[in-house]
Simulated scan of single mutants.
Amino acid sequence: MIHTISALVKNRPGVLAEMAGRFGSSQVNIRSISCGETENPEVSRMVISVEADDDAVTAITSDMESLDVVIQVDDLGRKEFVDRELVLAKLTMDRETTTQLMQIFEVFRAHVVGMGQETITVELSGDQERVDGFIQMVAPFGIRSLCRSGRIALKRGDD
């Protein structure tokens, strides 16, 4: 099962490595991890997406909560949340495919951020299903390079 874990941590050197190490020592693979400052520059939010059973995630989140650099940990899979991911894709382009690609960009609301003689670079943000769908649609045209940010997420509502 995919779990999305959100952790507020003190913004200090080595915290990201220490947190990631907790998953490795528990033999849990991190599918994506993103970390950045919050509204308070002394605090960062780390969003970690893992594929693991409930018991493993409970053990890891309990372990994380015991660390002095951790302020709060939430397993968002047990709550309502909104998530997004950013993807940058450099695609092969020629005269015959430009119109088709532009139609796909319009449907997915992707934005052109760069062009070369033979390539076009686009950005898209959305939930994982939208990003996966976009990649599946443009893959036949030729993906030269691709970068995904990993999932970021927040709880819904007033919590």
Rank of each mutant, 00 (worst) to 15 (best):
F134P: 07
G21K: 03
A52F: 09
F141H: 15
R109T: 10
I135H: 08
F23N: 05
R12K: 14
E51P: 09
A56P: 12
V50T: 07
V107A: 09
I2D: 05
C147L: 11
A56R: 14
D68C: 03
D158Q: 13
T97E: 11
F134G: 06
D74T: 09
R144Y: 13
D74M: 08
G150M: 07
C35D: 01
A20N: 04
G150C: 01
E80T: 10
N40Q: 14
L88Y: 14
E123H: 15
A139S: 12
E39A: 05
P13F: 02
K10N: 05
G116Y: 10
V47I: 08
M137K: 15
E42D: 10
L101N: 11
S25Q: 14
E85G: 00
A20W: 04
L88S: 10
D127Y: 02
F105T: 12
S49L: 14
T121F: 14
S6M: 02
T98I: 13
S145P: 08
F134D: 00
G77T: 12
V47P: 02
K10Q: 10
G24R: 09
V131A: 00
T61W: 05
N40F: 08
N11S: 03
F23R: 01
G77L: 03
V28T: 07
E39R: 15
P41T: 05
V69E: 02
I71G: 02
T121Q: 15
I135K: 05
V131T: 05
E18I: 00
K10H: 06
K155A: 01
Q136Y: 03
S145K: 12
C147F: 03
R156C: 04
